[in-house]
Write a protein that binds this DNA or RNA. Structure first.
Lengths: 132, 132
DNA sequence: ATAAGGGTTCCACCTGCTGGAAGGTCAATA
DNA sequence: TATTGACCTTCCAGCAGGTGGAACCCTTAT
């Protein structure tokens, strides 16, 4: 399979697939003409990566997950730990964004948004200047 | 004011302040010895930037906001638009993360996380391989 | 023969900093 | 006065995770 086919199959751009090869996540063979030649297992790996990335796992997480995936003797606890840590990071991020959202929504709400220059958003961002 | 003082005052690392000068967000003067010399207005700008960045505005947003801030003739609608677009981006991000979180939490929940190799997390990530 | 549509490499760029090396400056102390 | 230590300076490199483009090769059809 050439890279274009793999791209449409895995949903990853060809550029990304080349990048994944660069950083050692996949090792496709090469045809006589120099084209990358992907085996079924490579395609599976890439689909795996595509899904893992879509769930927000970092590349390093993906590397670990692929290793565990390949090791049929792994303990599921190892996988669960990676996923649990990632879940905590997501929760953290959601909490941060939610707080930002609240503040920002409040400001947007307070701003008339008309032709006049008075703007609570700028006033809040400046704050210190207010005390001036 | 030297960069160290400004850093502790604005809450931004000195490195970041230098970077902000690099990209033209602030233009401090220079003392005879070559040290950056920050006026009150620079310090205010940096505090403004610090708050705007904490609310997740991009650097380019900040650039626009600073320009609007400096322009006492601005229409508040211009500010509101930037903030509203940013709010939408935040909502988008929260939605994505929330979906990720749901899927991941479901998987983590389903995984025994013990010494055995059976793992629904890997199984789900692989999917295609399942059909193999 | 040539044009279209694959593929290849390499290098630069994106966001928003951060770290480190190598050196200049300043105030206080031994 | 020498020297320490805490400042400051510049410049260069790197992080994640790709993306864009240039310049080129390969294959197939017309």
């Amino acid at each position: 399979m050439n890279i274009g086919d793999v791209a449409s199959f895995s949903g990853l751009p060809a550029k990304t697939i080349r990048y994944y090869e660069d950083i050692g996540l996949v090792q496709p063979l090469r045809s006589a003409n120099g084209y990358r030649s992907f085996r079924q297992s490579d395609v599976h790996k890439l689909a795996f990566l595509s899904r893992a990335r879509a769930l927000g796992f970092t590349i390093e997480d993906c590397r670990s997950l692929l290793k565990l995936y390949a090791d049929t003797e792994r303990a599921s606890s190892e996988v669960k730990q990676i996923a649990t840590e990632h879940l905590a990071r997501i929760d953290q991020k959601i909490a941060e964004l939610t707080e930002m959202r609240a503040t920002l929504a409040h400001l947007v709400d307070a701003c008339a948004g008309d032709h006049r220059p008075d703007c609570p958003i700028l006033a809040d961002l400046a704050m210190m200047q207010e005390a001036n």
